[in-house]
Write a protein that binds this DNA or RNA. Structure first.
Lengths: 232, 232
DNA sequence: ACAGGCAATATTGTCAACGTTTTTGTCAAC
DNA sequence: GTTGACAAAAACGTTGACAATATTGCCTGT
């Protein structure tokens, strides 16, 4: 049940989007990779029209770039864009946490705790796909409980983009945020401790960003001009 | 030169989106109106595929709702969604203004002043289309100068949605925000006065929201059940 | 006369084929 | 030996037609 689905109208298209996203965050698909419509159509056993719809959606989410008459590539956000994404997402997450602290119910706390428990289980089982999915889902769950349809949508896009950036710039393989930090966030929210919750969330996001290599040399994988020339 | 264009790849699709948006904010198209693909195709002299693309984009922006096998309607955001949209947009605008205050240059101030002047001209000429366009463009210009690609995109969506809400719930006909308030915002930004700029922007947005009739009785125009029955 | 089901119509969803643009490989001229 | 243009191939964009689905009007049975 992927949290990617924005409008669960067409299962096939969502499936394609989900697979591509998963391949990107699992680093199976490297940024800059060209995505030929026909190949994707054959791979997923779908028609080209469906693939085209999926690519259009993924472009909206900033996961692929769509050039006219050139086709689709996995997007390659630059360093500036990476920082922008994290900064914006941090801001949104802070606001969501603030909201949620004010109106959290015991039942909602239980929901969050259950989710973190599932994350822990996936972590111990070393199920990387589940870890990735649940990690993202945790933040979306906060947005859902905070009850802001728009903020929810915004966070969804930002989460997708930061996922891509993490897969792109993170040196070490262990990319998914550990369940412990999520647990601490839940604790603070459950205690209605707004400042602590914001602090934990901020720490969490900064931890994520700190693990990236956003130095200048870490240029986009397939920048070509930037990769070969000294980023003129 | 519509600020609606998110990806200026296809002129025809953008044209369609722009026209529909304009018709909505000008209250020519009422919320709930069904948009038949074939009719739109004939109206705009385009093919149905193009219309379909445009509708998909407009759905992303929350301007139309797309039901499977039912087609497209102009969206009818409820009161909760309306408040949500204004609250979210206010927050984003505040952040943008804060950012811009820190790094505004004289040239950028000049750009803003020029824009406000154009707004004033349109206001005096009673050119309603230009007023609407320029009003939205002003806020997008702030986002552009503030240099946050993501916030820019977010504000764009929020502006579109608040436009729809304004057209939907505003009682009086004079809907576009007057140039004076924009002028005061620019003054505060030009003076690097962060608190004043935020205050002006907040006042501006609250003024916009205050002119709406968001009482419970003001149900969506074409709610059918809600419109005919006493909102059971 | 009314309710329920059935068929006709209208509208959207899907697909396969065609035209256009870009890319790449080749060849001739300098 | 290199450069430039040209042609072949591949990929995308577009079109039109066909199938699936929802709505509407009608008809029959009670």
């Amino acid at each position: 049940m992927p949290w990617l689905a924005q409008t669960p109208k067409n299962a096939v298209v969502n499936e394609i989007c989900d697979r591509i996203w998963l391949a990107v965050v699992q680093r199976t698909l490297r940024p800059g990779t060209r995505l030929k419509e026909e190949d994707l159509a054959e791979i997923f056993g779908a028609t080209r029209a469906r693939v085209r719809q999926a690519l259009a959606l993924l472009e909206q989410d900033g996961l692929v770039t769509l050039s006219p008459n050139r086709g689709a590539c996995i997007a390659e956000p630059g360093i500036e864009e990476a920082r922008d994404a994290f900064a914006t997402r941090l801001h949104v997450e802070q606001r969501l946490v603030t909201r949620l602290c004010g109106k959290i119910t015991p039942a909602q706390v239980a929901t969050l705790r259950t989710h973190v428990a599932r994350e822990r289980a996936a972590h111990q089982a070393a199920d990387s796909e589940a870890m990735i999915r649940l990690s993202g889902e945790f933040h979306m769950l906060i947005a859902t409980l905070a009850e802001g349809e728009l903020l929810h949508r915004i966070l969804r896009t930002l989460t997708i983009r930061t996922s891509l950036i993490t897969a792109m710039y993170q040196a070490k393989a262990a990319q998914t945020c550990g369940p412990d930090e999520h647990g601490r966030i839940v604790d603070a929210i459950a205690a209605h401790d707004e400042v602590a919750a914001i602090a934990e969330m901020t720490h969490h996001m900064q931890h994520l960003e700190a693990e990236l290599d956003l130095s200048d040399r870490a240029q986009p994988t397939s920048g070509l001009r930037k990769a070969l020339l000294g980023r003129g």
